[in-house]
Design a binder for these strands. Sequence first.
RNA 1: GGGCCCGUGGCGGAAUUGGCAGACGCAGCGGCCUUAAAAGCCGCAGUUCCGAUAGGAACGUGUGGGUUCGAGUCCCACCGGGCUCACCA
Length: 940
Amino acid sequence: MTEPIESGPTHRYSAHRAAVIENRWQQAWAEKNAFHTLNPGDEGFDPTARRFYCLDMFPYPSGAGLHVGHPIGYIGTDIISRFRRMQGDNVLHPMGWDAFGLPAEQYAIATGVHPRETTTTAITTFRRQLQRFGFSYDWSREFATIDEDYYKWTQWIWLQAWSSWYDHRVERARPITELVEAIEAGEASFDRDGCLVWTTPIAEGKPWSTFSKTEQRDIIDSHRLAYLDEQTVNWCPKLGTVLANEEVIDGRSERGGFPVTRRPLQQWMFRITAFSERLLGSLSELNWPESTRVQQTAWIGRSEGADLRFPIVEHVGEIEVFTTRPDTIHGVTFMVLAPEHPLVDATLKDPPANCDAKAIQEYVDTASARSDVERMADGKNKTGHALGLHVTHPATGNPIPIWVSDYVLMSYGHGAVMAVPGHDDRDHAFATKYGLPIIEVVQTAKDSMCDGCWSGDGVAINSCSEQLDINGLNTAEAKAAVIHWAELGGHGGGKTSWKLRDWLFSRQRYWGEPFPIVQTDDGTHYPVSPEHLPVALPPLDDYKPAISEDPQPLLGKVSEWVETTAGEAGVDPDLLPPDTPVRRETNTMPGWAGSCWYFIRYCDPTNSEALVGQAAEQYWLGPNDHSKGGVDLYIGGDEHAVLHLLYARFWHKLLHDLGHVSSDEPFRTLYHQGLLTSFAYKRADKSLVPIDEVDEEHSIERATGEPVKRIIAKMSKSLRNVVNPDDIIAEYGADTFRLYEMYMGPLDSSKPWNTDDIVGVFRFLQRAWRLVVDEESGTLTIQEDPNKDVERSLHRTIAKVGADIEKLAYNTAIASMIEFVNLATTHNGLTADQLDRFARILCPFAPHIAEEFRSMLGLDGLCSLAAWPSYDKDMLVDDSIVMPIQIKGKLQGRITVPLNMAEADIIAMALAEDQIAKILDGNEPRKVIVVPGKIVNVIP
RNA sequence: GGGCCCGUGGCGGAAUUGGCAGACGCAGCGGCCUUAAAAGCCGCAGUUCCGAUAGGAACGUGUGGGUUCGAGUCCCACCGGGCUCACCA
């Protein structure tokens, strides 16, 4: 650290002094355990105090250390946590580390350093950096997801899901043993397809005892909330792992540019779709940003419509489609199947004479190699082939051709659509390209349709066939009529579809939680019993993936760990004899796992008996007088609007159903801090110029003299506009840094970092210091008698700062404190009592200097733990107020009136005011509007 | 292309939700202090115009319309920017 050059009087508030003060108080807080939060049952715990659980989003400690964008949210939560603590709330404000993840593993591949080592170092750096800000975290609750004590419970929760099923009759997850009991008791049976049916005359179904052991196992497994399924994945042999869709560009991996193939792979899945209705429904009960609720709603994607079945003409069978517009059934002129649709494959094996089987096969092969994302990217240009088969239109009886096209996705609905080119833009484009007929069946609201088609509501027309007449009905009525007709005639029925898919939960990486499950030769899975958790990661010599066309998880390389016995693996001997050979699961959990429940663990982080103790969970997360339960304030970036927040809600609801947590939502109030941007410069041709190549004063590029324009951009290494928080703290201190980031603007809006502005809040602290400290001697300079205006202003400031903190409007709270200090400066200072109160309202924002003030006053105890000062309501209003007078909305004069002056007197006074009287020139105004306490408006 | 959000001085942003637009801060200008500079302190400061000055006038919250005694705030249309979803049948 470079020692800043000190100038000015010896006892001025300088960077050096700030550093001394800040170190002193950070040490004092640590020594006194100032921010240790008591749990129910602890000595001294006050159960009557209101709880405030204030949570930051779990950081991933990257090797690069903290960036100036990180602390914005942390300062935000620290201020309100400190404020609530001073108000007497029980505040839970923890911090920890989301520490499994790819970067450490990539580093291990390159260097051979164990990811644990890399991660631990990164955590140490992050912790040190965070502590320098003076955050009031309860560090005794800190943990990392890679701690065995923690991921033991992550594995335990997964086993809970594996051991559960979803009972749609009661809309709740239940232990799988209850399903087995119900089946054995004959309450449930199975239809022809092996689907579970709850019937009383069991005779309808196939008796459970007639299924083989393997069949029984497969049926039960297929109902588990954590289950194995074959999924089409992006497999990259070179990287040795499955990739997410967004990690694949043009068939190659984003990282490294290696070829990626689409192939089916057995993967662990979570049945999150079982919770769709609840995940959607309870969104409306959450105090969340509207945009985030909208995003989750769209992601869950509920749509109401109908499943309809169309019998195939050429052979036995039918095509089932999902449609949201059953009312347009008379407008169906062709069917479209996704290339992966089973009927396509079946048809190609025995192609009808009139179809170009070779072309279709090629088309299907090309489509399968492309991801959904790529297929969608093609947009408007639709392609496809006629399959040569037909269906019978269930209402008209007409034959309808079947086509194959990749604009239909196998992953939604049934992978087939009934095409209504008259009223669906995509079908319209396809029909236009291939010359298929277009029938209009909905009266178009606007008669002039340009190139597209009308896809809105309207009155049904041309919709009369022998079986079904819906002409004249509006869209809602027509939908209901068609669904009713379909149900009666066995053509289908009403259906709700969801975009949400089950969650692919396994990865082929090393640095993640192993699955606590083993498999015997016959493919039966057995759980590792809870007392043998965690299943720890085995050591690995070489982190390089085994290059293979056949997907092999990294853990598969540790054969002596994989091939073991039931006893060794910790399977309950009652389930399997200890010497039975078993294979361990070699996939690991994805990075999301640890962050799905960390906020639960913070309530009781050292509990070795349970993931959380009941009393602690109920107090910190359960419903109470103020809340329906869940974290009281959760602050983090909106980049997690969907995945993390949805996954955590899913786990929470699952744990709630199984009785492990008492609220059904994890995060009651959510707030997104805005993105920290930076200034950058742009040439006339729109290319960007690194900031250090620009003469900022004259807005020209140094090298060329070309004029550049200042714009707002993300901080990036290439623009060289990244700022390191350590440097800023060295130059101004942590208190100034905290104030600056909060003073920049509203917490939730994105705003540009501007180093030049920092000096403003630094001067504020200097002025506050000088207000009460003699810069030459360092002694306190305190007034004996309070100045009336200063006292009045202090009351207002206390009121405003408190109200603004509750609203997270920190920028205006700081502005009001600056005003107060400016006013007090012109009135020659503060009394000891005034300084004490001022220090206490400053404390949440700039806690170190506030502690210093308090200790200079010789007061006992920490400022951080002192009570929030009160204010006198009467001091907030003046005896008299200045009222502006407008004539026709234009300001023309002012009068000073006593508070509560009668309206008639105000009017008289207003009309008598010089300028007003002059404009009225003796005429009676037509009307005078008096807004009490605000304004007078005269209409002549 | 659909959905949502946002446009206020040279810059970051205020405005009790329909009531004095521009709080507070940065940058700027003037003064004090200093041999000088920095720091600090005091003051000025939306734009344009008139005026020697004191002071005054007009225009002003992206553009155009509307509602209202009164609009940054509400309504309609447009322009610009951001976020997000993107063949979901």
